[in-house]
């Protein structure tokens, strides 16, 4: 996994609440057995209006947002299906950081495991950012994970929370499976204890 330390990047706005993973990446892209090549499916069903013309509202259809690495969005982003194809598609498009007032649980977790930093700011802060992004073309933010800050071009600083453990893994790009495997003896001891406490859990298939 690619570490995340600081990022200064162009911000793209997606002004919708409850964006579900079915919208982020539609089902036809779930048939793949790879992690890559998902960018073409990102928000696919929102790219065109019902009459088939490109929807100018979607940031992907506005050249001013080309190359954005930070996605600004609304409440409960990433709800619905657990598909990790959603963060893979966002990553494939170049996003390394997402900012919203809240994220759905599974999606939030999936982001950290793929080197994407989901930042939770409060609704007023997000609203202020939406206004700023729309008002000035080329609007960039700087996100510093170690300091847990988002800094605007005007040097306004927003602070965010993140679990120390997740933060450390992301800062260093650690492989969490490797970390857990270091505790193999503890896992084995746990299993042995449980085999006597709750033996019905152990007859394996």
């Amino acid at each position: 996994m690619q570490p995340f330390t600081t990022l200064t990047g162009l911000v793209a706005p997606l002004d919708r609440v409850n964006v579900d993973t079915d919208q982020i990446i539609p089902k036809q892209f779930l048939k793949t057995i790879e992690r890559t090549g998902l960018r073409e499916g990102l928000f696919l069903d929102w790219r065109k209006k019902q009459d088939g013309t490109p929807d100018p509202e979607l940031f992907l259809n506005q050249t001013r947002y080309n190359g954005a690495t930070i996605l600004l969005t609304r409440d409960n982003f990433g709800c619905g299906s657990s598909r990790e194809h959603a963060p893979w598609a966002l990553l494939d498009q170049g996003f390394r950081c997402l900012i919203a007032p809240s994220f759905a649980d599974i999606f939030y977790n999936n982001c950290f495991l793929n080197g994407i930093l989901p930042v939770v700011l409060n609704a007023e802060e997000v609203q202020a950012l939406f206004q700023a992004v729309r008002a000035s073309e080329g609007y960039q933010l700087t996100v510093d994970l170690a300091e847990q800050t988002v800094t605007t071009p005007q040097k306004t600083i927003y602070r965010f929370d993140v679990d120390p453990f997740r933060k450390n893994c992301l800062l260093k790009g650690l492989d969490s499976i490797g970390l857990s495997l270091q505790h193999e003896p503890t896992i084995a001891a746990y299993e042995n204890k449980r085999k006597t406490e709750a033996p019905w859990l152990f007859p394996d298939l």
Binding site: S82, I106, N109, L113, D163, S176, L179, S180, E184
Partner: peptide, 19 residues
């Protein structure tokens, strides 16, 4: 429910890292 990275984590360790 879990994501695919966590599926791999469970297969490898029979455990998950959770808050």
């Amino acid at each position: 429910g879990i994501g695919t990275s966590e599926v791999e984590h469970v297969l490898s360790t029979q455990c998950l890292l959770q808050k």
